[in-house]
Amino acid sequence: MTRCAVFGTGSWGTAFSMVLADAGCRVTMWGRRAALVDTLNATRENPDYLPGVRLPDAVTATADAAEAARGAEFTVLAVPSQTLRGNLERWAPLLDPGTVLVSLMKGVELGTAKRMSEVIEEVVAKEGAGAGPAGGPDGVRGRVAVLTGPNLAREIAARQPAAAVVACADEEVARRLQTACHTPYFRPYTNTDVVGCELGGAVKNVIGLAVGIADGMGLGDNAKASLITRGLAETARLGSVLGADPRTFAGLAGMGDLVATCSSPLSRNHTFGTNLGRGMTLAETIAATKQTAEGVKSCESVLDLARRHAVDMPITETVVSIVHDGKPPLVALKELMSRSAKAEGH
């Protein structure tokens, strides 16, 4: 039986643990709160994130990171993106050599503008945790995979049909992960375009905020469809400069994830944006949000990444101005709509 470690007991970490167990894996989840870990083991339920959903018997939980990591063929990282580096610096020495590191996170690191796979490669190579014979990040890259796509945790925990993408520079590793999480309701596809898959997942959170703001303002479907479409164009422009395969953005990691995030009330980013669009302050919206909306912080790092590469991302810039600069949504909308006209391909 394939052994998996899942670091993180939030909604997506818990739901993906269920997927792995349903695919025949034995899963140990790590949680930072001992009380929640005890509850998971005693009641077979995560009351904080997925109440009413029973965990498979093959899933157990621990607050001991070394216990979770021991013997894991796949080590799944499911923590908020801005906490990844600090957490992984503590966990890396505990990892088994050769373990495949799987990122469920959809963000870009503040300050460095690095994608999550880049952070993983950098930290693991630095800590010497199975960096491989080549040493350094290149010795780790073939063991870092990304899982992304239209994967709303609550629906997957209910075992509703969903598809996803598992991306890795090493195609054989991607196929191994595909097998480890393939169930009758969860259909993963493989891809070697890690850059495109990660960008699609990170930027869609920002566009999800924008569409949520539009919803909160009472704007119509034309406006929201325009934001989704032009948001995908922004993502593809940035991806092109960074070497992503343009076809990725037409697939599950691009359009698929974007549509789910921008249209579902289960999307944290969409809900966060809706509250802002209705007139709530940032502090009020944060207080009303129980879980991490990755786009709130990542919009700044995505914009930073775009500016480093001289890529124009006006919707992302508008979201940053509303979320972090306090610009009223109506003012920001007027500025966005008054931009100079241009050909659609630009």
Rank of each mutant, 00 (worst) to 15 (best):
S17P: 01
R307C: 02
L152P: 00
P93Q: 11
D193K: 03
A180P: 02
L95R: 10
E284F: 05
T75F: 09
S17D: 06
G200H: 00
Q160L: 15
T292Y: 02
M280H: 13
M280P: 07
P329V: 07
G208H: 06
C181S: 11
D38G: 14
T9D: 15
R85L: 05
K204P: 01
R175F: 01
L104D: 13
Y49I: 00
L232P: 11
A210W: 01
A66T: 10
D221S: 10
S81Q: 08
L152H: 12
Y49V: 00
C197F: 00
S321V: 07
P161M: 13
L330N: 04
C4I: 14
P329D: 10
A69L: 08
R278M: 10
E67C: 10
I228W: 04
D64I: 02
N151Y: 03
M217G: 01
T9K: 02
A306D: 03
G212Y: 04
L20H: 05
P97H: 13
H346G: 09
V311C: 12
S240Q: 11
R70C: 08
K334N: 14
E109R: 00
A174V: 04
Q82G: 02
P328W: 07
D38K: 15
G196I: 08
I322P: 01
P80F: 00
S103A: 14
A306H: 02
R54K: 15
S264F: 02
R307K: 11
R44F: 03
A153S: 12
G256K: 07
P137R: 12
N151S: 13
R268Y: 02
A125H: 08
V302I: 13
Y185L: 09
G13T: 12
S267R: 09
T62G: 06
K204R: 07
I156W: 03
I315D: 08
V323E: 00
